[in-house]
Design a protein around this nucleic acid. Structure first.
Lengths: 231, 231
DNA sequence: CATTGCATGTCGTCG
DNA sequence: CGACGACGTGCAATG
């Protein structure tokens, strides 16, 4: 990992063309050759970058570039496409470098899979007397998150999302369309379950006879593991 | 902008919980207080981060933390949510800092808007005798990318994407549904046009009677501006 | 301010 | 390796 603060201009050519006028920026060069150009704002996304696998070559400035105050030119080329990032260094201000080694990696906990798991375990959140049929119920167009039966024996088809938006309703609708082609399955009810359901998604779901269900992640986790309440 | 190379462990708590075991990493602290933790690989996405607006406070290690070799603790708290990033510094290896000032910003050129523009100008790519009605044709649920008329006077509704996936077909379907409620518009044809159309999107589109059209960006740009062929 | 649709999205998983 | 869906998606344009 090499971190450089430099006055530079940057050009990217690939899926689009992009240009950065000369200014002071932080340039990161990772061990795999990938490069990030960061400004002192924005969020985690760099102004410009090149993803691995790629190769950085440093070269001298042309006479025209030298006349513009460019001292050297870094060219980063992607190995498998025509994508090119050109960094023209006007002034090198500070630099540091260190071998970081391989990172042990991120441990995550608490995403959509967990919501699905919790709802499967607490299936009566769908309504009293509901019983789980199975999670990841397979269909021709992909697995349905949860299938259950209501007290009258009707099949309940559940799509679980962290954030419920229109896309999720469309996805559930496709599952319902497919499953309704099989008359053996009888009456089907769709349930769109999410921590947060956007108004438009709610309206669309209801207009299609799909129930919406707000999931309270903290409460569900608490019900599952009482010690979790302590956090 | 402050860049620090340090052996550290990191914990994030917010929409999910995530943990990074102790290792040497690069920590960036931007002028707005936002923080990025980068490893020597991955792409531009940090292992962990905190987006602005947020506030970084440095504190001493607790006695328990000191026993684990922690020398100090950085806590980054988001201003508007409960999101917290905790960085435990085990060893500070290198550091540099510089005021970058405000960046002049990125100039982009050549995205989906351009594809739409090119197709509008070369509307006969839809088929011989087609004529442009208008771009960004307004509907109650948002603007249709392009509306045209086929030789028989029928209305052609076009959704343009760079990469054609299921979402885009759903979007076009919603436009067609809305527009078909107006009998004044007569017969409607849907066209899903993209540089690259995914198989599932193609199947879904065709099952709904929507034509798919592959766009050759390079050729379209060449037809528009013959000098572009030289690049 | 909330919603929508795009992104050089990136990243995992599964066929 | 490609397709597909999730993401702490981020981000800008828009009503």
């Amino acid at each position: 990992m090499r971190a450089v603060i430099a006055r530079c201009s940057v050009d990217y050519s690939g899926r689009l063309n992009a240009h950065l006028a000369p200014a002071v920026r932080l340039i990161l060069v990772k061990a795999d050759g990938s490069v990030l150009v960061h400004a002192d704002g924005g969020s985690y996304k760099p102004l410009n970058w090149m993803s691995p696998p790629c190769k950085l070559t440093e070269g001298p400035a042309s006479s025209a570039e030298s006349a513009d105050g460019v001292t050297c030119v870094w060219t980063v080329r992607h190995n498998k496409s025509e994508d090119t990032l050109t960094i023209r260094i006007h002034e090198l201000i500070a630099e540091m470098s260190h071998d970081l080694g391989v990172d042990p990696g991120l441990v995550k906990d608490g995403v959509e899979a967990h919501l699905q798991e919790l709802l499967a375990d607490q299936i009566e959140l769908l309504g009293p007397g509901h019983r789980l049929v199975r999670r990841e119920y397979p269909t021709a167009i992909g697995p349905v998150d949860i299938v259950a039966r209501d007290p009258s024996g009707g099949m309940v088809v559940v799509e679980v999302k962290r954030r419920g938006e229109i896309d999720g309703v469309e996805q559930l609708t496709r599952y319902l369309d497919i499953l309704r082609r099989d008359p053996m399955l009888g009456q089907l009810t769709g349930v769109f379950a999410a921590q947060e359901i956007k108004p438009q998604a709610k309206v669309l779901a209801e207009s299609r006879g799909i129930r919406t269900l707000n999931l309270d992640y903290a409460a569900m986790r608490g019900a599952e593991d009482p010690t979790a309440r302590l956090f």
